[in-house]
Every structure is written in C-alpha cells, then in structure tokens.
Design a protein around this nucleic acid. Structure first.
Length: 230
DNA sequence: CTCCCGAGAA
DNA sequence: TTCTCCGGAG
C-alpha cells in the first residue's frame, strides 16, 4: 500500500487538542477494567457501560478471578444495563478464564509481549474484534496502535479524508503512517475523535455551526470561502 | 447481511 | 415512537 504523507491528519489533531484539551482517556482504574469497558462498550453508549461497571465495582468484581468465578446468570444481571448482556457476559467469562488459567489472572502478563503477537492473541478471543483489541492494546497495554471506530469513519469521511467504507486495517495503517509512533498521541487522538462526534459530529444531524472543525470540513453546512486548511 | 439489547435523547 | 450508541459473530 502506498501512502503519501498528508499533514491534515496532524492538523486535525492540533485543532481538536486546542479545542478540547486533555480528555484523560481511558477512564478506568486498572488495565483489566479497561478491557472490561472495551468489551462492554461495543455498539453501546458509554453511559450504559458506566452503569454496568459500577455494578461490578460495588460488588468488588472488577478482577479476573472474581469475573471468572461468578455464575453466568449473575454476571449477566450486573452488566445488563450495557446491553447485549448474554454475549458480553460470555465474552468476559472467556477472557477472564483464560487470564486466570494462563497468566495468573494478570492481564499485564498477556499485554507484556510484542504488539503484533499480543494483538493476534486478543483477536483470537470470541468477542474481541479489531477495535476492542486495539483499545485494550493502546489504553491498557500502552502499545502504539491506533483505534478505529465508527466515529473515526464518520468524522474523517465528512472531513473529506476517507470514503468511510475502507477496511479497518487500512484506516488504522493510514493514521499510523501519518502520525509519529507515539502512544500518548494515539490515545489522545482517538479520545478527541470520540468527544468531537459526541458533541458535534452526530450521525443524523451534525451540529456544524459551532463545530471547531467547520472551517476545514468538506461536509460542513456552514458557508465559507475556499481557503480551507490555511 | 442480520442479530444481539438497554437507556436516554430526539 | 424512533434513533443512536467508543462492534462483533454467524
């Protein structure tokens, strides 16, 4: 794949970072809690994930051994607010069981390997796809991998930098090729993209008028002169 | 492609 | 009532 350097990817980061500042992602108190959140938030509003995680925290169940040891139906009830609770309970169980059986219950042990190798191991789990794997790798494992989600596709297609239908791996590789290999940069950028879409770049009716990227956005409904990106 | 699912906003 | 939400499996 041939990729030409395009400073717009860095320019967008700068604009977002100037506007939103440090968002302090990922909101979690431990690497394993990051993984739980990453699985629970699949196609689910973070608000609902917080309800589920708080249920687990209130019962001191945010550990691999606790998750692994509890009954499936009890786990389902606690994570119910996060939706898709039957499958997510299975995913959490499978992951926690493995960590307890092979890594003494320490996700840090699994995440300690090389990026590509650990990524392959994560993707082998039922319930962990590319976005969930990259979220765990980046925010729990501090590995330099870029997280691509529906927000990334939507924002950058509206900006005119993606069509939106590219494969996950293509978009991930594109961002990593355009940016310095930096865990903090990748972590902050993904957080900024999420916040940007939650506040302005909504799916159906984007709020373009107050959007901090309106002057550089191809899809902005705000009428502007043609001096974009300068 | 369809299905999985609750919660709050529109 | 419908839509959307920090996707993934079959």
């Amino acid at each position: 794949m041939t990729l030409l350097l395009d400073d717009r990817f860095s320019a967008i980061f700068t604009r977002l970072n100037d506007y939103f500042g440090d968002l302090h992602w990922w909101p979690a108190e431990s690497p394993f809690e990051v993984a739980i959140g990453a699985i629970l938030t699949q196609n689910t509003a973070w608000r609902n994930v917080e309800l589920a995680i708080n249920n687990l925290r209130d019962h001191d169940l945010l550990t691999t051994s606790a998750i692994s040891g509890m009954a499936r139906d009890a786990l389902e009830e606690l994570i119910r607010p996060a939706g898709f609770f039957h499958q997510k309970a299975e995913y959490l169980h499978l992951f926690a069981h493995y960590l307890c059986a092979v890594h003494q219950g320490r996700i840090e042990s699994l995440l300690a390997g090389e990026l590509a190798a650990v990524r392959g191991q994560l993707l082998a789990f039922k319930g962990i796809g590319p976005e969930t794997a990259d979220s765990i790798l980046l925010y729990a494992g501090k590995h330099p991998t870029f997280v691509v989600d529906a927000y990334t596709r939507r924002l950058f297609s509206r900006l005119g930098l993606l069509s939106g239908s590219e494969r996950y791996g293509f978009i991930r590789t594109l961002f990593m090729a355009q940016l310095a290999e930096d865990v903090e940069l990748y972590a902050a950028y993904h957080a900024l993209i999420v916040e940007m879409c939650k506040q302005f770049c909504h799916k159906r009716t984007p709020d373009c008028a107050p959007c901090p990227l309106r002057t550089v956005c191809a899809a902005s409904t705000v009428t502007l002169p043609l001096d974009r990106f300068k």
